[in-house]
Design a protein around this nucleic acid. Sequence first.
DNA 1: TTGTAAGCGTTATCAG
DNA 2: CTGATAACGCTTACAA
Lengths: 333, 333
Amino acid sequence: MATIYEVSKLAGVSLATVSRVMNNNARVSDKTKQKVLDAMNELGYRPNASARSLASNRSDSVGIMVSELHGPFFGQMMAGIESELRAAGKHVIFTTGHSEEEREKDGIEFLMGRNCDAIIIHVEVVTDDYLVEVSQGNTPIYLLSRYVEQLKEKCISLDNEVGGYLATKALIDHGHNKIAYIAGPQFKADASNRLLGHKRALQEHGIEFNSDLLFIGDFKETGGSEGLKHFIDNQLSFSAVVCANDEMASGAMKYAREHGYTLPNDLSVIGFDNVIFANYLYPTLTTIDNPVEKMGRMAAKMVLTDIYKRKDLSIERVFEPSLILRNSIVESK
Amino acid sequence: MATIYEVSKLAGVSLATVSRVMNNNARVSDKTKQKVLDAMNELGYRPNASARSLASNRSDSVGIMVSELHGPFFGQMMAGIESELRAAGKHVIFTTGHSEEEREKDGIEFLMGRNCDAIIIHVEVVTDDYLVEVSQGNTPIYLLSRYVEQLKEKCISLDNEVGGYLATKALIDHGHNKIAYIAGPQFKADASNRLLGHKRALQEHGIEFNSDLLFIGDFKETGGSEGLKHFIDNQLSFSAVVCANDEMASGAMKYAREHGYTLPNDLSVIGFDNVIFANYLYPTLTTIDNPVEKMGRMAAKMVLTDIYKRKDLSIERVFEPSLILRNSIVESK
DNA sequence: TTGTAAGCGTTATCAG
DNA sequence: CTGATAACGCTTACAA
């Protein structure tokens, strides 16, 4: 592998000059520049990333820590981050925490040890305090889909309250007023904010919140079926159910169908997140879009702006969810 | 950040000795080793990855190039690779090709420029020849879900022929003998091998292959609906259809239902791949499992064995698919 | 605009 | 078993 040294010899200039042209951060005459470029070409020169990193104390790499790779979000989020960063010549190192506290911490520290210039973090189980502590180290961190007050400059999140509001409002707009709600675990901020939005929608439309029609699920398919079972077993009357995520919506739909409901006529269902399979469910699921790919892109842009001093990118920290109308909700009879 | 130099001073030993204990690749007396360890601890020492890489000509990182991040495979595959590699203290750099030839090539070269110790590649559009050429460079490459004769030692693939066989056999075992087949693009080896398996299953069971009952789709949802439309419009008689992947199965099911079929009674459908949403379809999709996560793990193991000289891992290059029975096929009447 | 030279933090060779 | 010391390939003051 050719080194900068051989390039400099072939081009008849000094090491420093070669370095300058690769980084084009200092004035070099067009003529010498061309000589250098030619020499590089001729030798098939490729800069050595480790050497650059060692000398410059930058690695041109950013780390990503995700809690899980399996979920439906992951792919899109990563895609957003990667395409933005790669276009800027940075590379992406990733690791996962498998939704376990120790492994999440471990992963973050692993990435810091790799001299990442920044780390983008999408985790669930680690505490806010830990993140604040980490943020005081020398590697800047950015948080995706999570809002931590002290780190708000570094957070990219979805307005879940508005999302919850939109979901319930969509049902109300279709004439429903007996609306059940299957929530996610309330210690998760996403889940509790979505529920808040639900309550606001009810209130704004003069519908009283009935706690019998609330079930706290686990954000998984089972949570959805359990929730629906609960409502049915308790002989509650409702014509629609909002599920705090699509997985639970899927579980609820499955349970309903297995118990004699014809969907969507007997029961309107709305989900949240707009994951890929929402479009494969039967009926196709009306849901609230969670623009994870865009959010990933934005995280990358923040890094580019803050760390790599790019000037031309506009930053946005809170994303608005939107309603995706499909076939799982119908007018109330 | 503390360096090896400060550690050596605090421990009262030489640089070399400190290096030895971090790599524990040479004998160091227990006593000095302990002194060094203590010093490291006290200083919160973290080795500098770039410096190590520069000096040792190893980066302890392996690259992954995937064609797409969006597909349902990606997450599982990456998860498999990452967890295996991370456990070995290696890190993973990834990039994507967006299924475009230039970007795939570009990505591969990008990773080579990053001094990856090896690259695991899962691509579709780049040619075999290109891969062979790349394999002659100094960065070893490994191919996932792809078989290239000249690189067979480096390939991890699924036995698609057997998979196709199993799918059709499952239908035959359920009493079907008028079986339609919606294939994938035949220039893709996966697709053509699956079709081969289908034909073998028919033949072994004395059913003549009828080319009217073959449709070449695009591996997407639309391909499935178009295929089914084709068969129906041509008034062909069939009680079951095998789709060469789950996406197409989903499209076929959607089309069938929209055209008056009650599933699975009026039509048995089987897919291929066992992607996540197969379990969310209605009825849940019987399909052939494509063990992408395991294959990812195996790719990592090959790298660990070949490149990092781990001795204790058993290698397997061709994976067997298996039948996943769910609710989308029933006995033929 | 260009060149010189001192690092950057390790590893690895060679002695001892 | 341990210590010097020369790389590794590049960046970046500082000079010229």
